[in-house]
Design a protein around this nucleic acid. Sequence first.
DNA 1: ACAAAGATGTAGCCATGTCTACATTTTTGC
DNA 2: GCAAAAATGTAGACATGGCTACATCTTTGT
Lengths: 149, 149
Amino acid sequence: MLTPDPDPGPLDAVEPAQAERFSHARTAQSQALLEDYTEMIDDLIRETGEARITDIARQMGVTHPTATKAVARLKREGLAVSRPYRGVFLTETGAEMAERVRGRHRVVVDLLIAVGVPAEAAEIDAEGIEHHVSAATLRAFEDFLKGRG
Amino acid sequence: MLTPDPDPGPLDAVEPAQAERFSHARTAQSQALLEDYTEMIDDLIRETGEARITDIARQMGVTHPTATKAVARLKREGLAVSRPYRGVFLTETGAEMAERVRGRHRVVVDLLIAVGVPAEAAEIDAEGIEHHVSAATLRAFEDFLKGRG
DNA sequence: ACAAAGATGTAGCCATGTCTACATTTTTGC
DNA sequence: GCAAAAATGTAGACATGGCTACATCTTTGT
Ligand SMILES: [Mn+2]
Ligand SMILES: [Mn+2]
Ligand SMILES: [Mn+2]
Ligand SMILES: [Mn+2]
């Protein structure tokens, strides 16, 4: 192809950006499970003093081997530690993630409610939405909420 | 355990609802890929007259075997049809999904911008957020936007 | 018409995340 | 202290969604 641009068509210019967006969304999604488990384990520890595999599984709505595998991934990624037949604990990194994720979750729920989403729908949808809220978007949400005191 | 409620703890009441939310988010996520491919194939057909595997792959930012597998799933779910070495076409069901998904995507982007999210961040984040926006939330978004002329 | 280039198909690898089934360990209740 | 119950571990199946490598078909250019 010696003429590299034989009528680009309306799509060619937008293509790379769109592909990048899809790719970005896939990456965000791959973090979602880690974020949810981390936040939830932190919740369990705060509220019950420990996070057992059974509790984690029940809270996530999965079977216990699924929870075990998820915790294995958390450990592999340096977010949690655990020893056989003992509870799961967050590393410092994990605790920081839990902190950050909890705050973002709350802001997302509040934002949804602030624009008129019914509370129950806000709670449900936020659980998925939160993982795709970037730092820039989070900041905008916070500013919007602030301007409503 | 004869005493089935030996101090419920603050968490037990909230547990089932939370598990249900996580479960709901997982289900929504399993639809995300179908929605994105369907919308995007419809875009390609509108703008270039057809949707070839290579174009689909490039637009999604994946390799062509990945696109082929995704299209196989679309066909299996009754959203698309295709024949070897020919383009991909949407069924009536697929076209309806594309229509719905396109509208929701636009509303999500507009809502994000309306609450102050920078346009580029809105475009990026919407690609992931959209799949977790329920009918109730979408309606609220539309109402909010309406009340802004 | 035909060779080269491009598009598509297909096989098979890997990682993730779900499950069921079964084994083992720990905790509980008496 | 010990048997039963509960919790945890582990194996292995299945589905999904990425990828590379290679085979085959179609389109293009001369
Ligand atoms: Mn979540
Ligand atoms: Mn959350
Ligand atoms: Mn999307
Ligand atoms: Mn979209």
